[in-house]
Nucleic acid binder design. Sequence first.
DNA 1: GCATTTAATGAATGATACTCATTAAATTGG
DNA 2: CCAATTTAATGAGTATCATTCATTAAATGC
Lengths: 236, 236
Amino acid sequence: MPRIQGKSKPASQRRPREERIASIMAAAEEEFRGNGFEKVSMARIAARAQVVEGTIYRFFDNKHDLLTKVIEAWYERMLADYARELEGFSGTRARLHFMIWRHLQTVWDSPQMCRLMFDQIRSSPGYRDTSVFSLNRMYTRRTLDIVAEGVARGELREGLDMGLVRDLIYGCVEHRTWAYLRGEGEFDPKQSADAIVSLVLCGAAAEVPGGDLGSLTDRLASATDQIERLSREKAG
Amino acid sequence: MPRIQGKSKPASQRRPREERIASIMAAAEEEFRGNGFEKVSMARIAARAQVVEGTIYRFFDNKHDLLTKVIEAWYERMLADYARELEGFSGTRARLHFMIWRHLQTVWDSPQMCRLMFDQIRSSPGYRDTSVFSLNRMYTRRTLDIVAEGVARGELREGLDMGLVRDLIYGCVEHRTWAYLRGEGEFDPKQSADAIVSLVLCGAAAEVPGGDLGSLTDRLASATDQIERLSREKAG
DNA sequence: GCATTTAATGAATGATACTCATTAAATTGG
DNA sequence: CCAATTTAATGAGTATCATTCATTAAATGC
């Protein structure tokens, strides 16, 4: 069908590209933050950014792409300092604790953004191509580096399935923050981090820190045997 | 505006209520299973059920309600036998293993249904009013009963935060099945269940599983006494 | 067998993501 | 500095759906 178009108004003014993108993303972030993904219409975002709907599509492929870019920007801003902050901690437990606490604290600070990320970004088909994905990989890689280092130092058990340890930690974190993310509960980042580290470590840590309880038990048993024999000999 | 309606065809035939609901739900399940929530239109479901769109709304409030009822039915069918199957296992470890394995196996058997449940049902506002929610509560309650029993028997550490143990187990399970659910990886339910139980238990279990650290301590104390006596006698 | 209730119909409605012909502002190049 | 060309912005469409409702006939009650 032929498309008969009416008159179109002039392109009133032309703001610089970067400024325009920034204002669209700012408007989108505010809207998405406050109302979630589905409830927000492109018309609202356009109105808030003082732009017409069509203009958004010049810079973003579609609504989901817009959200993805918004979340990416937020995530990059946030993760920027993590690596440096981590430097301040030494020891497997302290470093693991920091990673877990930092994660929990982020959820606590920005539940709406995290929810968008969990519900909309992370389970979308193109997720693996987003920068959020690679940032997340970096982040969990860092966690597993700490675990590997712990193993090397003898603080953690050998032969740990790294993938499973990652699933254990971040799965636990996610479930712990579940209710809070949905406005149905609270949690304390510090307290939760303590508890999670303890629970995970007692699984991951070698039974007796720095040692092998198995062989120790063997030595102790044999030593005791000898002492008892000596004692009996003395008495006998 | 007044609504001027054209002619409407007769209500050709009237199938029994239950049969009609069943055919709608069956059609919806097939469609949702194969195409996810958003991609499926009510028109397609109606066509497959040999019903007109409006008819669906006589039995279901809206598209999401239809999905919820479909998932509820599936979930009820599935969980029906769990309690009985669990009876076959005794011992904390074996029973926990069964619960985790059963969960993993379900995901493995019906990834599409699980995905719908995770993405669409579990994070919807009305989730707490669904029967899926109460069934899930029952299910995790059962898991925590096993943990509590383990504590009572002295097999698991005292003072465990039950909520955290639940988050640890089910969070880990969910993350482990993440890729598989999205068609991006595999996992072995049995193997994963073994690994998860081990990792979780070594955290939750008393330091030496089943072993008698107590009697070892007793022997050590008495041996020390003897050493000291020997030492004194030798010196004296 | 007539009157009333209830189920089924399918055509409207409204919301909304996304497109595109039109127009004017920038930019280029002579 | 001005004409030709490129590019951005516009807003009126279009397409797709979930959802509604006046209409009609089948059941049911009397």
